[in-house]
Each structure stands twice: as structure tokens, then as C-alpha cells.
Design a binder for these strands. Sequence first.
DNA 1: GCCAACGTTGGC
DNA 2: GCCAACGTTGGC
Length: 139
Amino acid sequence: MNHWLFKSEPDTWSWDQQVAKGAAGEEWGGVRNYQARNNMRAMRLGDLGFFYHSNQGKEIVGIVEVCAESAPDSTTDDARWDCVHIRALRPLPRPVTLEDCKAEPALAGMALVTNTRLSVQPVTPEEWAIVCRMAGIED
DNA sequence: GCCAACGTTGGC
DNA sequence: GCCAACGTTGGC
């Protein structure tokens, strides 16, 4: 199983809104970046991801699950853009901020730190475990 | 609100 | 295919 990280500005789409969608989940549409799209194409049902609030909060607030694999993005007619659906699984007991990640040497290579502008990122198993521990949950 | 980083576009 | 111009993201 692979791990990922989804960024969203809470003004546009927040964790609370994601939670409100329940088990049905929501299409992660509107992504117009090839790297992010390719990451979504690589996702499989049941993959887990962090849900990160960019701009405001700047923290990882929850864990989501891929509940529909990559398919054409309904927010555009442009055939280039695909996206997955995700659903909220659980909030983090203690959100992990960007600052926290930067302060943790073991996370120095994390895309969140090194590739700030990428909105859908891969997360390594090691990074996943470390962030989970920092958040107060066992992996 | 500013600006650095980075991606995309389009002229040549 | 190069690169300048431009647009966007996102931290600060």
C-alpha cells in the first residue's frame, strides 16, 4: 500500500467539509499539475493519505483513504486531467504542522518540506510512521 | 500583500 | 528546442 499527502486551502475545501462527505467521499478535482495528476493515477483503492491545510493552519489534520481510483476529472472537459476520490478516515489527535515537519531531521526529505508547491505528494512509509507518531497515533 | 519557486506558454 | 514572459502556489 502506498501513502500520499493531499493539500487543500481550508477556505476552499476544509477537513470539516471532507468529513461531512462521510464514507461516500468526494472527488479530488481541479488539480491541474502533471506531477500531482501522475501521483493520483498511481493511487490504488485503500491507499492512505494525509490531509494538509495549506495557507491557513499549515498543518496535517487528518487521514483519508482513496475510495475511487483515477478517472476523468468532472470539473473539466479536458481529457488530460484525471483524479481520484477520497474519504475522511480519522482526524489526527494532534495536528502536525509544517513547522513540526521542518524541525524533525528525519523529515528533511519530505516533499511537504522540499517541494512546497506540489499539491498531491507521495509519502514514504518511514515518513508516514514518523508523522503518525508525532500526531499521537500508532501507525 | 509580497515574493520565491516552479510550471506552462509561446515566439523564435 | 531554447528561453523569456507570465501565471500560480503557498510560505512568510
